[in-house]
């Protein structure tokens, strides 16, 4: 009897013992495919001299660009970038709320048709490249920061809607039940129980998304959607490395400042 029992685990351990060979084979195949597929012919002879001048430009940035009162200087464009990110995030946080309730899985739902379709829509929005969105909006409203605001506000729905819907799924239903048992209607349940319960999480996620939006607003300008990205791409194309250096410095400082500020606020929220 003992032999019949020990037979099955023996085959299992054999598989357990040797399946790492299979994994190594899979990984080896994937990496061979990846390395042989790429052609590293793009290397220029000027790479060394260009990197030297970039480092030189980073060490001696163009300080005169910081502020010159023309409205096209570093400070005003960084403020514009922040404005794009802020406005885009606020708009998208408002649009995301109905999407989140659409995509949140409910208890009495038949086969999760409603929440499933909402999740698919949010995934589609999330995967649609933000740059392409910006270019499409440039066609609609012309180049400038307005197109950037629209791109940020539509693209952010994908992520905010997902985070919001997960917050709704995991929320504490106690307050909802209390209002229901006291005879409140669904509008009262929403206003007095649901909203106050999830508000801190919504605000925290919105702040987190704002941090990401600041980064994307600073590169949207590369395709013409306003902000600091536009002078950045011009400076790179004209090989104006001291200018690139000061803009990089500005972006790094801006992102560090916004990240630490938002982190402080989020810590106080939850």
């Amino acid at each position: 009897m003992q032999t019949t029992i020990s037979k099955k685990p023996a085959t299992l351990t054999l598989w357990r013992r040797w399946n790492w060979l299979l994994w190594i084979a899979v990984v080896a195949v994937v990496y061979t495919w990846a390395i042989t597929g790429l052609h590293f012919t793009g290397l220029q002879e000027s790479a060394a001299s260009v990197s030297r001048s970039i480092v030189h430009g980073l060490v001696q940035p163009d300080w005169s660009y910081v502020y010159n009162g023309s409205g096209e200087d570093l400070v005003s464009l960084i403020l514009q970038t922040l404005a794009i990110a802020f406005l885009g995030t606020i708009i998208s946080s408002l649009i995301s709320v109905p999407f989140a309730f659409w995509a949140a899985r409910g208890g009495k739902e038949w086969l999760h048709v409603r929440s499933g379709s909402g999740k698919v829509i949010l995934t589609l929005i999330r995967t649609f490249p933000e740059i392409v969105l910006a270019i499409m909006f440039i066609k609609a409203v012309g180049p400038g920061s307005y197109a950037g605001v629209l791109a940020v506000s539509i693209h952010s729905i994908g992520m905010l809607g997902k985070l919001f819907s997960e917050a709704i799924e995991n929320m504490d239903r106690g307050a909802d039940e209390a209002i229901t048992s006291a005879g409140g209607n669904s509008a009262q349940i929403f206003m007095l129980a649901t909203l106050p319960t999830i508000m801190p999480e919504f605000i925290s996620y919105t702040l987190y998304r704002f941090e990401i939006a600041v980064r994307s607003a600073s590169i949207l300008g590369m395709v013409g959607a306003g902000g600091i990205g536009t002078p950045m791409i011009f400076a790179i194309q004209t090989r104006n490395w001291p200018r690139v250096g000061i803009i990089l410095l500005g972006i790094v400082l801006m992102v560090l400042l916004i990240d630490s500020l938002s982190e402080q606020l989020r810590k106080r929220l939850i």
């Binding site: 052609h39 793009g42 220029q44 790479a47």
Partner: peptide
């Protein structure tokens, strides 16, 4: 954008 300037256009960047 910076690495395209250094390495040239292509997948290396």
């Amino acid at each position: 954008a910076i690495f395209v300037a250094i390495f040239g256009i292509g997948s290396t960047a």
